[in-house]
Every structure is written in C-alpha cells, then in structure tokens.
C-alpha cells in the first residue's frame, strides 16, 4: 500500500468515525483533529476503525494524542506498522 493510498483510507476513516463538525473546510494533512473538534471518545472509535481497515494493532506506546492528532501523524504511524 503506497503513501497516498494510506492517506486516502485514513481520510475515509476520519470522515466516518471522527465525528467532526459538518461545516469544516477540507482537512489539511497537518490539521489538528482535536482542535477542530474530535472528542476523546470519537478518537477511540477512529483508532478501532483504523485497526480494522489496515488490519493492524496499535501498540500501547502509540496510543497517545500526538499519534492521532492529524492525518499526517496517523498515516505515518500506519506506514510504520505496515512496514
């Protein structure tokens, strides 16, 4: 899976699970998802969906705010786990 495909799938998961406000402008790769409205509970749903879509398991060391704060950060973590 190449980087742009990962980025697209990450965006799809965010659209379905991050519960962001409907009137947001399109997300930049670096947009801070928490600052635009992602609540902690929604972030957990997003983590679960990412594990399912990419067939990966985030190790506990990755389960922190920084790893899930932007499309870029999430994509980087997914790439690392997919090897």
């Amino acid at each position: 899976m190449d980087a742009s495909e990962i980025n697209q799938k990450v965006r799809q998961v965010i659209a379905e699970h991050a519960q962001l406000p409907a009137d947001l402008p399109p997300l930049e790769d670096q947009t801070n998802l928490y600052e635009v409205g992602m609540a902690s509970r929604a972030s957990v749903n997003m983590m679960l969906a990412l594990e399912s879509v990419f067939e990966i398991e985030f190790p506990d060391s990755m389960l922190n705010r920084a790893v899930f704060e932007s499309i870029a950060a999430i994509s980087e973590a997914v790439e690392e786990l997919l090897g």
Binding site: V44, M47, L48, E51, E57, F58, D60, L63
Partner: peptide, 12 residues
C-alpha cells in the same frame, strides 16, 4: 463507559 472504550484499544 470510558474505561470500556479505552479497553477496546488498549492492550497492556
């Protein structure tokens, strides 16, 4: 509820 949610992703 919060713990249940965390435990669905947390492995440790």
């Amino acid at each position: 509820e919060t713990n249940a949610s965390i435990l669905s992703v947390f492995k440790g």
